[in-house]
Simulated assay, not measured.
Amino acid sequence: MKDIRIAAAIFHSAAPDIQKNMERMTEMVLAARSRGAHLICFPEMNICGYSSRPDIKTVAETVPGPVSEAISRLARREDIVILAGMAEKGDRGALFVSHLAAFPDGGLGVYRKVHIAPPEQGVFTPGNAVPVFELAEIRFGIQLCYDAHFPDLSTLMAQKGADVIFMPHASPRGTPEEKYRSWRRHLPARAFDNSLFVIACNQAGENSNGLYFPGIALAIDPSGNIIGKDLSGREGMLLADLSAAAMERVRGHKMRFFLPNRRQGLYERARGGD
């Protein structure tokens, strides 16, 4: 990988005011770019606001569609990668919790949440793909909120070459400090075990769906150390410089980089009952 500055947005999503959210996103994209960021990550479902109620389908859109096209135009105009969340309308009535990856060259990727949390089941459909995206010499994956509790997903992304995993959340309840203590239990482990950076951010404040989100963002290095945090609880932006040297200190050390010694074949045989 190469050195890169990223921005993790703590974002107050007005549900379901897509136009207002898009206007505020544009302001934050401009601010991130002016401060040297090459990528900005917004929280889960920040474009439409988070809801696990069936009426979320009224603000769902297809990809491509008006929202994804607007995000793509913004990424091209400002020369920055934008990761942003929405409710996506799929085929045959499927509804996905999706995150767009819009690139300055016009490329557009989509990650669909793989693990649907119990309150979301029956409304959203789980995705079945684990893409890894590329920006110059950086490869990254995206996980959404509940996804982060499943270690195998992070390992699969690492095996596909991810240097960074972005973990946008729409995680309600509690104070920022309580959310920080919760994230400290598992997010550093995802970084440490897989020798990669983890960047997480949450929505902030109350939305019109009756939920309150403690605003928080974290940046974690491949050794599992926290290299940046914002526990203010307010809308804002965490900037983090992801260092190629920090990555090399881990992946270039045979006793610190665990992944090459993982016995994939053994696990596959064990699952088969051998």
Rank of each mutant, 00 (worst) to 15 (best):
S72I: 07
P188V: 01
I216P: 03
E23I: 12
L95K: 12
R5I: 08
P168A: 13
I18D: 07
Y146P: 09
R262W: 15
F42W: 03
N128D: 01
A162I: 06
D17A: 08
N261S: 01
P168K: 13
A270Y: 04
R256P: 00
G65T: 06
M167P: 00
F257D: 15
A9H: 08
E88G: 08
K89V: 06
E120C: 15
K57R: 15
G265K: 11
F257V: 04
F197H: 06
A32Y: 10
E206L: 11
A148R: 06
A32M: 08
R269Q: 12
L83M: 13
G122H: 10
R262P: 06
K254Q: 08
D152W: 10
G109T: 02
S51F: 02
L242N: 03
P151F: 13
Q203W: 09
G106F: 06
A60H: 13
G272T: 00
L83K: 08
A162Y: 06
M247L: 10
I216M: 05
M247C: 02
E44L: 03
I71T: 13
S13C: 03
G272V: 00
A60D: 12
L30A: 15
A170N: 09
N261C: 00
P66H: 02
R263A: 13
E61L: 02
R190F: 03
A7P: 09
L39S: 04
I82P: 10
R92D: 15
E178D: 09
Q121F: 13
N202M: 05
P54V: 10
V63P: 09
N202I: 04
D241P: 07
E177P: 01
V114R: 11
R181C: 06
P131A: 12
Q143Y: 01
A162R: 07
A9E: 10
V164Q: 02
G233L: 08
I116G: 11
Y267M: 12
S195W: 11
D55N: 13
R24V: 14
Q121L: 12
F42G: 01
S68T: 11
P64S: 02
L239C: 00
N207G: 05
H186W: 08
D221H: 03
L100C: 07
A162N: 08
G205Q: 03
T26H: 15
F166Q: 09
I165S: 03
A244I: 07
R184K: 04
L95D: 12
L74D: 06
M22F: 09
M25K: 07
I216L: 14
G205D: 02
R269W: 07
Q203I: 11
C201A: 12
L259D: 10
M28L: 15
T125F: 09
S13L: 01
I165A: 04
E120W: 15
M1V: 08
P151N: 11
S208C: 07
L156F: 05
H12L: 12
A200W: 00
R24M: 14
T58F: 15
R5P: 02
N207W: 03
A70I: 11
G85T: 12
V29G: 03
A245Y: 03
T175L: 04
I116P: 14
V97Q: 14
A217L: 06
S208G: 06
S51I: 01
R262N: 15
A217R: 04
D91Q: 08
T125C: 10
D3K: 00
F103Y: 13
G224L: 05
T125N: 08
K179N: 06
R271P: 01
R5G: 02
H99Q: 15
M22D: 01
D241M: 11
R35H: 14
G107D: 04
I40A: 15
